[in-house]
């Protein structure tokens, strides 16, 4: 997909996030919006996958480690045709396929996610399985910045480097906020690029809202051999909805009906 097409897709993904969360009445808009560009580039450009064959053993794998931001995952999966868009409007309802945190009832979701800090390990397992079977699929994993305060993440980081998982690419959605406030105030994670490099990862830092930079970064890290790659994507929490940007409250508060209408106006293709 071309850069401008991906930008249009990302706007559509953001509209779906706002709509499904407003309808659901609860959920996590901030981190879903901050990762919308990353996820659009991944699902509409980078990943080799086919919604008609969600169990294809050779498909590229994606795992969302920050499971609470599943609205963005649900949005891209439905846009790719994994399930009908109508499912989005049942998010978080009793009996719905789309749970508040993702599980394997959703086509395209291979392992449940939600308890933070575990997803990179899951992705590591997928990467090791490819090595055993000499398959060429790649594994992508999206992590949150608050999430990497979990010790389990660093266990996975150490192991992925140890086992030279060059088919594994992690992305850090570095929006700078977690529920209790600014990441640097709650529990500082800096110097974060140095940490990943010290753990043996090929590490690059990009603007997580520049489609071009993301496209280039994913293309480049594909060629890195002998070690896993980390793309640190600097993002803005609540990105592209003016009154949600940088507002910690929108980590876990959904827009009201009026706020959603305003947001959709801002996210319109005809602005």
């Amino acid at each position: 997909m071309q850069i401008n097409e991906l930008e249009t897709k990302a706007r559509q993904v953001r509209r779906l996030i706002v709509q499904m969360l407003e309808k659901a009445g609860s959920g996590h808009p901030g981190g879903s919006l901050s990762s919308a560009d990353i996820m659009s580039v991944l699902f509409f450009h980078v990943l080799r996958h086919d919604a008609r064959r969600p169990r294809d053993p050779n498909r590229d794998r994606f795992h969302l480690s920050k499971g609470h931001c599943c609205p963005v995952w649900y949005a891209v999966l439905s846009e790719c045709g994994y399930f009908p868009q109508e499912e989005l409007w049942n998010l978080r309802r009793l009996g719905a396929m789309l749970q508040g945190h993702p599980d394997t009832h959703v086509p395209g979701v291979d392992v449940a996610s939600g308890s933070l800090g575990q997803g990179l390990s899951v992705a590591l397992g997928m990467s090791l399985a490819a090595k055993i079977d000499a398959r060429t699929y790649r594994v992508y994993c999206l992590l949150g910045d608050g999430e990497i305060q979990e010790g389990n993440v660093w266990e996975a980081a150490m192991a992925a480097a140890h086992y030279r998982c060059d088919n594994l690419c992690a992305v850090l959605d570095y929006n700078g906020f977690q529920i209790d406030g600014r990441v640097e105030e709650v529990m500082n994670i800096e110097p974060i690029a140095d940490k990943w490099r010290a753990f043996g990862w090929h590490t690059v830092v990009v603007d997580g809202h520049s489609i071009q930079q993301l496209v280039d970064a994913f293309a480049k890290v594909k060629g890195v051999g002998g070690k896993p790659s980390m793309i640190i994507a600097k993002t803005v929490k609540g990105k592209a909805v003016s009154f949600m940007e940088h507002v910690v409250d929108f980590h876990g508060r959904v827009p009201t009906k009026e706020e959603a209408a305003r947001a959709l106006q801002e996210l319109s293709d005809e602005r």
Binding site: Q118, S121, V122, S127, A129, I132, G151, A159, H162
Partner: peptide, 26 residues
């Protein structure tokens, strides 16, 4: 040896990675 992985002293990583491996048919 190609089907054995030592995770070091890191049981949490081992269990979550086990799920990842199993999701790929192992």
């Amino acid at each position: 040896p190609e089907r054995f992985f030592n995770f070091g002293v890191a049981e949490q990583n081992m269990m979550a990675a086990a799920a990842g491996l199993a999701s790929c048919g192992k």
